[in-house]
Amino acid sequence: MNLACEEAENPRPNMEETKRQIIDLGNGSEVVYIPRFLSSDESWNFFNYLNKEIPWTRPTIRVFGRSCLQPRDTCYVASPGLPELTYSGYKPHAYSWDDFPLLQDILEAVNKAFPDCSYNSLLLNRYKGGEDYVGWHADDEKLYGPTPEIASVSFGCDRDFLLKKKPSKAPKDKRVEDAPPTKRLKKNDQSNQQSFMLKHGSLLLMRGYTQRDWLHSVPKRVKAGTTRINLTFRRVVR
């Protein structure tokens, strides 16, 4: 996808694209999507800065007890004094906000849009093509508290972002198991799945009990031939 050409043909965002789209997932879970959170010009400036200046690394992680190379680049930034972040057996080095001044500009814009969040940490990811991805997971680490609000800002190539409800832990209903196939709840029931196309300069916020009750992923996409950089702002509870 030639994003530069696409932006040149549509230099000004449609007013509908600047509005917040609020999706109620039920049971206290909610997603807010702003397709044009940042302008095209400033988004490309941020993309070029992040792509060149961030000390990206592609770490080895553990998934289902096996070591593998993480299928995307990453970097971690956090305010001083916060507990260490650990995921999939990997402990990233925490850089300072002062190391990357332009990150503070993006943080300021996000905090202005969602003033109740007060973000103090940031996990950056870089997808260098369609083979880079993140599998199904929830950002439900204890250091984020019971109802984390995670804001995701995207730059570069458009990528699909998928949500699906976690399987119920309730005991199986024998009557449902014995019901004819046509009367069983379909696994791809639309109420249990959501999908978004995360565009260049967009922001997606997951809040409430989304991390408790839902999983999310950025799947492989063969046609995604260029780089996407994603910033996920989080609040670590001290």
Rank of each mutant, 00 (worst) to 15 (best):
residue 1 M to S: 13
residue 1 M to A: 14
residue 2 N to Y: 00
residue 3 L to H: 09
residue 3 L to W: 11
residue 4 A to F: 10
residue 7 E to K: 06
residue 7 E to W: 11
residue 7 E to P: 00
residue 9 E to I: 10
residue 11 P to L: 04
residue 14 N to Q: 10
residue 15 M to G: 03
residue 15 M to S: 10
residue 16 E to I: 11
residue 17 E to N: 06
residue 18 T to H: 02
residue 19 K to A: 11
residue 24 D to A: 02
residue 29 S to H: 01
residue 33 Y to L: 12
residue 34 I to V: 13
residue 39 S to A: 12
residue 39 S to Q: 10
residue 40 S to T: 09
residue 41 D to M: 12
residue 44 W to E: 12
residue 44 W to C: 05
residue 44 W to K: 09
residue 50 L to I: 03
residue 51 N to T: 06
residue 55 P to W: 09
residue 56 W to A: 15
residue 59 P to N: 02
residue 59 P to W: 12
residue 60 T to H: 11
residue 62 R to A: 14
residue 62 R to E: 15
residue 64 F to E: 07
residue 67 S to Y: 11
residue 67 S to R: 13
residue 67 S to T: 11
residue 68 C to W: 07
residue 69 L to P: 03
residue 73 D to H: 15
residue 74 T to I: 15
residue 78 A to M: 02
residue 84 E to G: 05
residue 85 L to W: 13
residue 88 S to L: 12
residue 91 K to E: 14
residue 92 P to S: 14
residue 94 A to D: 04
residue 96 S to F: 07
residue 98 D to E: 15
residue 100 F to A: 05
residue 100 F to S: 08
residue 102 L to C: 06
residue 103 L to A: 06
residue 107 L to H: 08
residue 109 A to C: 12
residue 110 V to G: 02
residue 116 D to R: 07
residue 117 C to L: 12
residue 119 Y to P: 02
residue 121 S to V: 06
residue 128 K to H: 14
residue 129 G to K: 04
residue 133 Y to C: 14
residue 142 K to P: 01
residue 144 Y to N: 00
residue 154 S to L: 02
residue 155 F to V: 04
residue 158 D to W: 09
residue 162 L to V: 01
residue 164 K to L: 02
residue 165 K to L: 12
residue 167 P to R: 14
residue 168 S to C: 08
residue 173 D to R: 08
residue 173 D to N: 10
residue 173 D to V: 08
residue 175 R to W: 08
residue 177 E to F: 06
residue 178 D to S: 10
residue 179 A to K: 09
residue 179 A to Q: 09
residue 181 P to Y: 05
residue 182 T to N: 11
residue 191 S to H: 06
residue 193 Q to M: 11
residue 194 Q to A: 13
residue 195 S to K: 13
residue 198 L to M: 15
residue 199 K to V: 05
residue 199 K to S: 13
residue 201 G to W: 03
residue 204 L to E: 02
residue 205 L to E: 00
residue 206 M to S: 01
residue 206 M to K: 00
residue 206 M to Q: 00
residue 207 R to K: 15
residue 207 R to A: 01
residue 207 R to V: 01
residue 208 G to P: 04
residue 209 Y to P: 00
residue 210 T to K: 04
residue 210 T to I: 02
residue 213 D to S: 08
residue 216 H to R: 08
residue 218 V to D: 01
residue 219 P to E: 15
residue 222 V to S: 12
residue 224 A to K: 03
residue 225 G to L: 15
residue 227 T to R: 03
residue 228 R to E: 07
residue 228 R to I: 02
residue 229 I to S: 01
residue 229 I to W: 04
residue 229 I to C: 09
residue 234 R to Q: 08
residue 234 R to G: 10
residue 235 R to F: 00
